[in-house]
Each structure stands twice: as structure tokens, then as C-alpha cells.
Nucleic acid binder design. Structure first.
Length: 372
DNA sequence: AATAGGGTCAACCGCGGTGGC
DNA sequence: CGCCACCGCGGTTGACCCTAT
């Protein structure tokens, strides 16, 4: 096809860069800019392919790169954004100034992911791995989950479509801003920006509609009628008689668990066949891109003492992050008296709301990417 | 001191998206 | 409209480093 031969060309060097090569590349870019990466190596006198030069520049030589250990703040940011965006490292990197996507990806894979795993949290979904602890019959548990998922996805689509309509009516100016960002040309970070703004809009839209409707939305199947306090995302949990907690991050990778894959397929199928208004379709698409869903099953058993190493059922996502970062004060959360039948109650919702609020704060932060 | 095993991270690979022709 | 060249992204690899034995 039209793919460039790149490094397959004979005579081109591969492997680690020497200081001399670095110097050549630096000197050339400082003087001329990189221009066309493909043409650069010849002009700079390098026996490398353009791709290799670009990578070396963006991941190592660029002057605005911060190297060294990640701070706790950075780790928290990565964890939260990963919960939100999945493996979209470039999008995550836009919120960590001076860090490259490659560096963040490596740090996640070698440190943060392992820490989460050790804590019994699925690093893909950012939810506790409680199924195995709760059930001696993992298969039946999984199929129970799957059967719930179709319901959740249907309800979610309905809810989102409704929110779209409300949001459109309520905030025309917001829509203009959203549209402008969606079509921001040449910016690879535009998509996450849009998605996160959608989250913000959704959150605010919900609180308004909640006030207007007394928290009771029209659809009998809607999951938006369950909690007075929770933001809409949180409302996807708890409609069922089972309190639910599951975070399914839509990442670019395909090797994740059965539940996540099934969820995505369900979603796509429903989205393609649903009769949403045009604007809703794009909005919904963005929401899906936003990579947040919550489904699956959770049982009060998980909140009982001795049910697991820590009371995962009560640990909020904020708690996960803090646990990950060794925040003992939040660790205590998991051990407090929330192991009753009220596990899925207001404290639970409040904690989860806090988690997502922290993400929203994160993306709203002035130190974040200028796209916000 | 030698070495095996695990961890880390820079670099590569291959794919998808996009724009020009 | 289709082809091609290019760029950027995410996944993977492998060389190097560190630590335990």
C-alpha cells in the first residue's frame, strides 16, 4: 500500500542513539525546525529514518521534557485520567506538561498498573477484582454480569439521549463551544478535550435536570432516578436491586476482560441501531469515547469484614487512587462502618462523586492542557 | 565474584487517520 | 474517488541495569 518503507531501507541505522546523532538532530532542529520528518535525516546528515528522528526528538531531545521520577500528583493524575480515558496515552500526556506519552505509558505499565493489581484492582477497568472473591462459581457470576450489562447499556443510551436533548435546549452556547472543539483541526488532543467537556456538561446538566424533575426522570428503565446526589454517571449504578460498581474503561487495546469487550460490543450495537437524534448520536459517541461506564454486579458481601484484604466494595475510586499512592487516611475509609446494608447508599455515592469531581477538577485545572 | 531473574525504559513496529494529488 | 505519502498513536521488544542468591 502507500506505507512508507521507513526503517526497512538498507543502510539506515537502528537502535540506541549516540550522543553525536543527538547533537546533529538537535542542531538541525534548532536551526531549521523539523519540517518534514522524512526529509530531515538526509538534511541533518543522519543515517536514520524520519520516524526514528521524530521519536527521538519527541521522547527525548525536546527541550521541554521533564525527566526523572513521577511525583505523587503526577501519578494520581495518570491514574485518574487512565480511569477516564483508558490507554490513550497521548491524551493523558496533554494533562501532564513536560511528560511524554511514552514515558507515561512506561510508568503506567511498570509501576502504577502493578500497584493496582497488587491491591486487587483491575488496572484496565479500575474496579476491584471482587468477582473471584465473591463467588466460587466465577463463570455463573460472569454470565450474570453479562445479562445485567444489556440492561445497563440500554438504560444508558436512553439516559444519554435524554440528557442530550436537555443539554441542547439548556445550553446552546455550550454546544457551540463543543462543536468548535470537536472540529479543532490539527489537534490530536481535541478528542479527549471534547469528551471531558461533555462529562462536565453532563454533570451540570444532570444536576439541573435533577432539580427540575425532582430527580425523577421519565423513563421507567432509566438509571437516572436512583440517587438524589450522585452525578449521572453514578446513577448507572444502583438501579438494580444489587448495588453496582464497575468501571469499564474503553481503551484502545483489545485484550481486556470478557466483560469489557462484551460491553463495548453491546454498546456499539445499540448505538448503531438506536434512533437517537443526529446530535445525540455524536454526543453519545463522544460519551462512549469518554470511556466511562459502570456496570456489573456488586454484593454486600464484598463490604463485609474478611471478605477481602480490604473492603473493596466501599473503597471509592478516589480511594483506589489514594490507596495506590499510599494515602493512609483514605485507606481508613475502607475499614469504617460502611459494611452494612447501606453499602450502596449515600456515602457510597458521595465517595464516587468525589472521585469524578476530582477528575473534573483535574481537567479544569489551569495547569492542565490549554485546551481546557 | 558470578550469574540468573526481574525491572526499566528507549526505541521499534505496524496500524489507522488524514491530506494532497 | 482512489491512491499514495506522511504523521501520530499504542503495543511490543530488547538492551541495559539492578538485586538476590
Amino acid at each position: 500500500m502507500g506505507r512508507s518503507p521507513c526503517c526497512d531501507k538498507v543502510g539506515l541505522k537502528k537502535g540506541p542513539w549516540t550522543p553525536e546523532e543527538d547533537q546533529k538532530l538537535l542542531a538541525y532542529i534548532e536551526e531549521h525546525g523539523h519540517g518534514s520528518w522524512r526529509a530531515l535525516p538526509a538534511k541533518a546528515g543522519l543515517q536514520r529514518c524520519g520516524k526514528s528522528c521524530r521519536l527521538r526528538w519527541t521522547n527525548y531531545l525536546r527541550p521541554d521534557i521533564k525527566r526523572g521520577k513521577f511525583s505523587l500528583q503526577e501519578e494520581q493524575t495518570i491514574t485518574q485520567l487512565h480511569a477516564l480515558l483508558g490507554n490513550r496515552w497521548s491524551a493523558i500526556a496533554t494533562h501532564l506538561p513536560k511528560r511524554t506519552d511514552n514515558e507515561i505509558k512506561n510508568h503506567w505499565n511498570t509501576h502504577l498498573k502493578k500497584r493496582l493489581t497488587k491491591m486487587g484492582i483491575d488496572p484496565v477497568t479500575h474496579r476491584p477484582k471482587i468477582d473471584a472473591l465473591l463467588s466460587n462459581d466465577g463463570r455463573s457470576k460472569n454470565s450474570a454480569n453479562l445479562s445485567h450489562m444489556a440492561q445497563w447499556e440500554t438504560a444508558r443510551l436512553e439516559a444519554e439521549a435524554r440528557l442530550v436533548r436537555e443539554s441542547t435546549l439548556r445550553s446552546h452556547s455550550f454546544q457551540q463551544q463543543l462543536t468548535a472543539q470537536s472540529y479543532n483541526p490539527g489537534s490530536t488532543s481535541a478528542q479527549p478535550a471534547t469528551s471531558l467537556d461533555v462529562l462536565k456538561a453532563w454533570s451540570s446538566g444532570w444536576s439541573k435536570s435533577s432539580e427540575a424533575n425532582g430527580g425523577d426522570l421519565e423513563s421507567s428503565t432509566s438509571t437516572l432516578s436512583c440517587s438524589e446526589n450522585a452525578p449521572p454517571i453514578m446513577n448507572y449504578i444502583g438501579q438494580n436491586s444489587d448495588p453496582l460498581i464497575e468501571f469499564v474503561g474503553t481503551s484502545g487495546s483489545s485484550e481486556t476482560g470478557i466483560i469489557k469487550d462484551e460491553s463495548q460490543h453491546e454498546w456499539k450495537g445499540l448505538a448503531s441501531s438506536s434512533r437517537l437524534p443526529e446530535s445525540s448520536v455524536s454526543f453519545t459517541s463522544n460519551l462512549h469515547e469518554m470511556a466511562i461506564s459502570m456496570e456489573g454486579t456488586w454484593s454486600p458481601e464484598s463490604a463485609r469484614p474478611n471478605s477481602s484484604q480490604f473492603h473493596v466494595g466501599n473503597v471509592t475510586k478516589e480511594g483506589f487512587t489514594s490507596l495506590l499512592l499510599g494515602d493512609s487516611t483514605v485507606q481508613n475509609l475502607s475499614g469504617t462502618g460502611k459494611d452494612s446494608e447501606n453499602s450502596g447508599g449515600s456515602d457510597y455515592y458521595e465517595d464516587n462523586k468525589n472521585y469524578w469531581s476530582s477528575i473534573l477538577n483535574l481537567v479544569n485545572s489551569p495547569t492542565s492542557s490549554p485546551i481546557f
